[in-house]
Amino acid sequence: MECAVEARGLVKVYPGGVRAVDGVSFCIRRGEIFSLLGPNGAGKTTTVKMLATLLRPTSGDAYIMGRSVVRERGEVRRLIGLAPQDLTSDDEMSGWDNVYIQARLYGYPPGEARERARWALEYMGLLDVAGRKAATYSGGMRRRLEIAMSIVHRPSVLFLDEPTLGLDVQSRRHLWGLIRSLRREGVTILLTTHYMEEAEALSDRVAIIDHGRIIAEGAPAELVARLGGDRVHIVMGSPGEAERLAGELAARGWRARAAGREVVVTVENAAEALPRLAPLVRGAREIRVSRPNLEEVFLELTGRSLREGEEALDSFRYRVLARRIRR
């Protein structure tokens, strides 16, 4: 099997001793969309930074189309495109200038750089507004500009770090369509996200990462299938009550566990199980049934929600992002 991106035992220990990435290995096949899914601080961005030659791994190595990110950094940089988490375009300049400069930095002479810039802007649906200052763009347009800047040299591998952070649902779906169409062009895409829907909608395969380690890997449907069956969520008045009910149900042979005020019961088929389950429950505020998704895979594996720690995003960066996107 040929890997477009292959990580082998990547470790990154930051000065001060924080082990942000703790032995990560995976293989992304050519032409695949591969997602790193995990909460903030799980090590997604650090992993991408090592793959994009921004950080040197403390140990381990990774190969982009067979080139080492440790020993062949120059070659790797020609093969990859990176759209960082932040909005990196200069809002004082036009979309055109932003993309054109990027093309020049990949070594294209002016004429060719103009062709590349035109292609990238057109691909991202920004050619009409290319002359306007990026500051006047909407949040979705800014994100598309980020990708246009990253594909101007037609990279073999594209890293998208939280590409839809802060976008509304509509802009997010629009961007998903564009990302899928890039894959059809043969671009291998590594996506990091903490939006479960995004990973589920886009990815051929997903690696769930937590505390710097990959804790599960596979196609989204496959990961969900491993959970087996439906979920019944019983919302109680307090975590204490939930704890007690979970204990009672478990004693009667149900697969139940408490998560906050909620008791989650795993059943093969909710429609059949509910009539037997309901009489056992007293004091429920709400009962819901769900088909499992990646969010629950994560919950099941870590006991925590993906959204926890969302506020951990660097506050300065968040303010900048929020300010830029609001326009």
């Binding site: 990859i80 990176l82 960082p84 890293f159």
Partner: peptide
């Protein structure tokens, strides 16, 4: 550095 442009720049062969 703070706005992330440096990262983009450093990922290019510049």
């Amino acid at each position: 550095k703070r706005l992330g442009y440096m990262e983009r720049l450093l990922s290019t062969p510049t």
